[in-house]
């Protein structure tokens, strides 16, 4: 236990170098976060595979569950580049994943989880020079799950790869919220003839949700 061994659910020393808030604020965000950064994924691992594994640490009856999964994409090619964010509704679930999933295999690779201060727009894209993750710039080994030789042109492989490469071609950079807390009178029966634009509505929804999220974490 905590006195005798080091618990596995502590955040690592990683600091987001591009975050626009100071270290103290980052640490505070980390201490309340229910978002995980997942690294060392294969480029071919799908969100559903990630969902399947991480859902095993979900605790819906305590108000939890997976809120959303944000796949990390190569900035230029818009293809997965080996990381993602998993956001739960509760922090306890994120900590459970650190304890029980981090360091185990997904899609035959040992994945690494870390608490993340929370998704911010643009963070789904790789930060390496070539568009992918920085670590793949420096990698010198051959890793078939991560596009072969580091940062090099990728040979075409199986069908799996083609599917994956096309999957996110349509990305707009807008990331879904995943659904917020229950709200009274959410099921309206208004006629939509007058019609607001769905985008507007989406924005409003999102704004409302983030307000709720803030309350959530107070």
């Amino acid at each position: 236990m905590a006195h005798v061994v080091q618990p596995l659910d502590q955040p690592s020393n990683y600091k987001d170098s591009q975050a626009r808030v100071d270290r103290h604020r980052q640490e505070e965000a980390l201490s309340r976060s229910s978002t995980l950064y997942i690294g060392n994924l294969s480029f071919y691992t799908t969100e559903e595979q990630i969902y399947e594994l991480f859902n095993k640490c979900a605790n819906v009856s305590e108000g939890g569950g997976i809120k959303r999964v944000i796949m990390g994409l190569d900035r230029n090619t818009k293809t997965p580049c080996g990381f993602c964010f998993v956001e739960y509704y509760t922090r306890a679930e994120a900590l459970a994943s650190l304890r029980y999933i981090s360091g185990t295999k997904l899609d035959e690779r040992i994945v690494r989880c870390d608490l993340d201060a929370g998704y911010k727009e643009g963070r789904q894209f790789g930060r390496g020079k070539s568009g992918g993750q920085v670590r793949d710039e420096h990698r010198e080994d051959y890793d078939p799950g991560r596009g072969g030789w580091g940062a090099q042109a990728q040979k075409s492989e199986a069908e799996r790869r083609r599917e994956v490469e096309e999957r996110y071609a349509d990305t707009t950079g807008i990331v879904a919220g995943g659904g917020g807390d229950w709200r009274q009178g959410e099921v309206p029966n208004q006629s939509l003839k007058r019609g607001r634009s769905p985008e507007d509505d989406g924005e409003r929804e999102r704004a409302a949700r983030s307000r709720l999220d803030v309350e959530d974490r107070m």
């Binding site: 559903e48 999964v69 999957r167 990331v175 959410e186 099921v187 939509l192 769905p198």
Partner: peptide, 18 residues
């Protein structure tokens, strides 16, 4: 195409679903 695509589709058309 993916879980996220599903969420995006739903959020875009929430009023329709309702």
């Amino acid at each position: 195409r993916s879980f996220s695509h599903f969420l995006n589709a739903v959020e875009r058309y929430l009023p329709l679903l309702r």
